[in-house]
């Protein structure tokens, strides 16, 4: 009897801890996915270099920490502008000419593949393939709630991811620039007629999409490690997140991220760790079949 009770308690603890782990990781997935979602909303293309931008963000964070001791939690101050500029440059000099020439969308996507290859391999040449980690004073700290323990960096990363997401939402809803971006996403032709400089908006949006990866990179460093080839893994995750959230919806992406995080962690516990990622894809295909507009329906942005 006592044994059974103990076991029941253990199961509940496992469930709670699994859900918590899923949500915490999901918040990061969400932030990574938002960058891709906002790009998709305005440009109508999937940026397959999104993960590589995240990688660049992580290296920037790593170097400002190693060289100047800037805490990763404060490093978004550097990574966000850095990635914004990088995104603007990529769009202005590579994507804009394609869009002006009305190139096929698959050409634009392939272009981002090329950009990703260059970024990954430039990082490989510059920083070698070594794995790097950052250790801060709070790296190994834990928060314990009864029998549940969560690592402090994971909680901090989640919290800041939520802050950045809210800031983005406010920006899109309340500022003029944000309204222009939403108008462009809804109907570029109408926006153009209303006097919105669509080309400029699309450059800025790409910059914001990249900047979000900068922020995500700063946070991911806290719980993960970095190496040049990590982009591909996260491009795929972002991709699933974006579809779950309904293509182009930033709020949906955040939700999609959390759903993906939960699906992965619950799947790992109750099905098999090996199939963990497959569960993500099954959810993905089910979404496509039953709710192609995404979790939050038709609303964009």
């Amino acid at each position: 009897m006592a044994e059974g009770q103990r076991k029941g308690h253990m199961d509940l603890t496992i469930l709670l801890q699994t859900v918590l782990a899923g949500v915490l990781v999901g918040g990061l997935y969400g932030l990574i996915g938002m960058g891709m979602a906002i790009n998709f909303g305005v440009l109508r293309i999937i940026n397959l270099a999104q993960g590589e931008l995240l990688m660049v963000g992580m290296y920037v964070c790593y170097w400002v920490f190693t060289l100047w001791g800037l805490d990763p939690l404060l490093s978004p101050v550097v990574t966000i502008p850095f990635l914004f500029v990088l995104g603007v440059v990529i769009h202005r000099f590579l994507l804009t000419p394609l869009i002006r020439a009305r190139a096929l969308p698959e050409n634009q996507i392939l272009l981002t593949v090329g950009v990703g290859l260059v970024l990954t391999n430039a990082a490989l040449l510059a920083f070698t393939s070594n794995y790097r980690t950052i250790t801060t004073s709070y790296s190994a700290s834990l928060i314990t709630l009864g029998s549940i323990a969560v690592s402090l960096p994971a909680v901090l990363a989640f919290g800041i991811a939520m802050l950045v997401s809210s800031a983005l939402w406010l920006f899109l809803m309340k500022t003029d620039l944000g309204k222009c971006i939403r108008a462009t996403a809804q109907d570029p032709d109408a926006a153009l007629l209303m006097g919105v400089n669509v080309e400029r908006i699309s450059v800025i949006t790409f910059g914001i999409g990249a900047a979000l990866e900068g922020a995500a990179g700063s946070l991911l460093v806290l719980v993960y490690y970095l190496f040049p080839a990590l982009g591909g893994i996260f491009t795929l995750k972002a991709f699933i997140v974006v579809v779950l959230g309904g293509l182009g919806s930033t709020l949906g992406a955040l939700l999609g991220g959390i759903v993906l995080g939960l699906a992965e962690s619950l799947g790992a516990v109750f099905v098999s760790t090996g199939y963990k990622d497959a569960i993500g894809f099954i959810v993905f295909v089910l979404m496509l079949i039953f709710r192609p507009a995404g979790l939050v329906g038709k609303a964009r942005m």
Binding site: L94, L98, A103, G114, V115, L117, V118, T120, A122
Partner: peptide
Amino acid sequence: HLIVYGVLIIVVIV
């Protein structure tokens, strides 16, 4: 070589 490859993709597409 992979950088050159990436640049090639970009150049052809642009």
